[in-house]
Amino acid sequence: MLQKPWYKIFVWFISTSFFFIASATLIAIFNPPPSEEQVMQFMMGMMGAMHNSLMGLSMAIEEDRFLNFMLELSSFLITPLIILSILGGFFVRRIRK
């Protein structure tokens, strides 16, 4: 399968897209500072994102009590869970030796 044409084309497509991303990043980094028109376009895009996107929705979800409760519970649980899993890992290593 790894030698089939469709797979090779797929790998080429993915690799090319990553090179496109890298070159687009370099072009953007080394461009001169943004013109006023570019700044306006970006700000207008952000304003549209505020209203139409998940970012805008999540800003409106502040009033959702259940979701806030879930977020607080998750935040409360995560640190003990991480510590327990690290301790568990050391315990498994000790048993193996």
Partner: peptide
């Protein structure tokens, strides 16, 4: 990477034609 870069700032938005809502 593509959608994230479009949201970085005014110098990068051209990657997705400044459609920040779709990028988000």
């Amino acid at each position: 990477t593509l959608s994230g870069l479009a949201m970085v700032g005014a110098k990068y938005g051209w990657i997705l034609n400044w459609d920040i809502a779709s990028a988000d």
